[in-house]
Amino acid sequence: MGLTASVLAIDAGNSKTDVAVVAADGEVLATARGDGFRPPAVGVGPAVDALADTVTRAYDAAGVTSADHVSACLANADLPVEEEQLAAALHARAWGASVTVRNDTFAILRAGAAEPRGVAVVCGAGINCVGMRPDGRTARFPALGRISGDWGGGWGLAEEALWHAARAEDGRGGPTALARTLPAHFRLPSMPALIEALHLGRIADARRHELTPVLFSTATAGDATARAIVARLAEEVTTMAVVALTRLDLLAEETPVLLGGGVLTAGHTLLDDAVRESLSARAPKATALVVRARPVLGAALLGLDGVGAGGEAQDRVRAHFEE
């Protein structure tokens, strides 16, 4: 029988996967990085197969063959039924004696919080929010896009900017500098040229996310339409946080609101200030904190929570990743 670690922590996002093998005293025995985790695109089985190489490399480097507990924070684990399916698939791999699967937003929350208590809002390609208390209560949203009531995220912001710019160009909407700055990013002369390039595939759909920083720079330069889009995102972030705080009876308590994802960690002053101002008005006891630590830290801390590790072990794993 091979050696056993305390926790196998997995943070698997759409673009990359991070794995950490952690001993009972919080020592990080090994880490590994792999490709993205996309069950909706390839299916649960193949997606978990793709994790196997990363986990195997981490276990080999650590000199262990399994763990007491697998703490997996996974992208696309948006519904309880998806968490159950993924947990069953991971358990079948026998990587650990027990398995807990959560949405990857929980990793951001735990990475930024001193204890499993608070709310996290993540704005990357999409937008999501979760909250938790030490007693196990959680608050969350489906986060499936517009069909579940979501607005925001880098992809949504780019589409909103394109919508306003197109209408400014043809007269259906008011003027906005976005009609000039968006096509200029791709070295195109006009919105009609950009629309044609996107429609005909000369510019890949995946490159639309490049327009999100253009939106923010245009807003910073003073464009009213771009600023209104940024203000709406700030309200969406605040609304999700306040609803989660309310569900968990934390609105009247001093509670951290952790902000993660590429959009919220990029240092957009206009957005940052608007979020803090709005949150201060609607949840005065909440404190907004930007989380830049690797989310696998959160998965590791949740795993240590699960095996009852003490504060020294948690401090040790946190120090490893924060250094």
Rank of each mutant, 00 (worst) to 15 (best):
A161I: 11
A177M: 14
G156H: 09
V130S: 10
G124N: 07
A158P: 00
T105F: 06
E169K: 06
C123K: 06
P175E: 13
A113F: 09
I127G: 07
T176P: 07
A114I: 14
V130E: 08
V121S: 08
S148W: 00
D104F: 02
W155M: 06
F141C: 10
R140P: 08
A107K: 11
G173F: 13
A166W: 04
W151K: 12
T138V: 05
G124A: 14
T105S: 08
M132Q: 15
G154W: 01
T176F: 06
G131R: 02
G118W: 09
T105L: 11
A111E: 01
D104W: 04
P116D: 07
A107G: 15
G136R: 03
M132W: 09
V121D: 03
G174H: 11
W151N: 01
F106S: 06
R117G: 13
R117H: 15
V122I: 14
A107R: 12
H164S: 11
T105R: 09
E159M: 15
G171W: 10
G112P: 02
E169P: 08
A165M: 03
R146C: 05
W151F: 12
R140D: 04
R167Q: 09
R102A: 08
T181G: 08
E159L: 12
A113M: 03
I108C: 10
V119L: 14
G126A: 05
W163P: 06
C123F: 04
R146T: 07
A158T: 05
D150A: 10
A177R: 15
S148K: 11
F141H: 04
R137K: 07
N103M: 14
G153Y: 03
A120M: 03
R102S: 15
W151R: 05
W163G: 05
D170L: 03
D170N: 10
E169W: 15
I127W: 11
P175Y: 12
E160P: 04
W163S: 12
E169Y: 14
C129R: 06
A111D: 11
G126M: 01
G156F: 04
A125H: 15
G173E: 04
V119I: 14
G112H: 10
V130L: 05
V130K: 00
E115N: 05
R133Q: 00
T176G: 10
P142I: 01
R133I: 02
A107T: 15
V119S: 00
V130P: 04
P175R: 11
A143S: 08
H164Q: 11
G145F: 04
T105G: 00
R102M: 01
D150R: 09
G171P: 08
E159I: 14
H164T: 15
T138D: 02
F141D: 01
A161Q: 11
A114P: 13
D150N: 14
G149N: 03
A125S: 09
R180A: 12
L162I: 04
A165K: 06
G171R: 14
A120Y: 08
R180M: 12
I108Y: 08
R140T: 06
R167D: 09
R140V: 09
A120D: 03
I108R: 00
A120V: 02
V119A: 13
A179P: 07
G136W: 01
G124Y: 06
A166P: 05
R180G: 10
P175V: 12
